[in-house]
């Protein structure tokens, strides 16, 4: 464990908690893409199956359980409890255009052709594009609530910190995982446009960002 991975995990946890609390406290999921949240729940489910097969550390197990729990709680709030506030008309990204190619790629490019490894690879590839429905929805509505932009900021920051963690681990441990790195670079690039808006609009104090 290094400081970059730890702050990355805490940034990820912050994003997940910020979103869950926002929906719970405002009792509304307006402006939130339910599709992205379903994809994240799928990412955690397929990646953390090793909870059943191997124990790495208390931290590792605890965080995985928290991530999975919050992901499903968020999906529940969006599609069940606060269904009336779900903005289905703007959450129209065709997720099958993400899941099918990612599923195919996981079969073609992986470290080991075993079920657990293919599911892990699928989750790595899927995570890199899972935010697209949310970014698409924001571009359609033309605005995002401040709290949603904070959620996206921490979510984007977490994988950017992981990129530094992988540089650190390559340099100090001679360890690298090309699949995780390439997917992490793609994932972080997708946030660049948003990061630019978040920083520039954030300074001007306007409470809504309007992606082009």
């Amino acid at each position: 464990m290094n400081i970059f991975r730890l702050t990355g995990d805490l940034s990820h946890l912050a994003a997940i908690i910020i979103l869950l609390l926002k929906i719970w406290k405002t009792r509304s999921c307006a402006g939130i893409s339910g599709k992205s949240q379903v994809l994240f729940a799928l990412v955690f489910t397929t990646r953390y199956l090793d909870l059943l097969t191997s124990f790495i550390s208390l931290y590792n197990t605890t965080m995985k359980i928290i991530y999975i729990g919050c992901a499903y709680a968020t999906v529940y709030l969006i599609y069940m409890k606060f269904k009336a506030t779900y903005d289905g008309n703007h959450d129209t990204f065709r997720v099958e255009f993400l899941v099918v190619p990612v599923g195919g790629l996981a079969f073609l490019v992986n470290h080991d052709f075993s079920p657990l490894e293919i599911l892990w690879t699928f989750s790595i590839y899927l995570e890199s594009v899972a935010i697209l429905p949310q970014l698409f929805m924001i571009s359609k509505t033309g605005e995002a609530e401040t709290i949603t932009t904070h959620y996206l900021f921490f979510l984007g920051l977490y994988r950017a910190l992981y990129l530094i963690n992988w540089i650190w681990r390559f340099y100090f441990e001679g360890f690298f995982d090309m699949i995780a790195i390439v997917a992490g670079v793609v994932q972080t690039i997708l946030y660049c446009d948003f990061f630019y808006l978040y920083v520039t609009k954030g300074e001007s104090g306007s409470n809504k960002i309007n992606p082009a």
Binding site: D9, H12, S54, I56, E117, D177
Partner: peptide, 10 residues
Amino acid sequence: GTANKTKDEL
């Protein structure tokens, strides 16, 4: 191999 080592990450 290195793949197993990734699995200590979230």
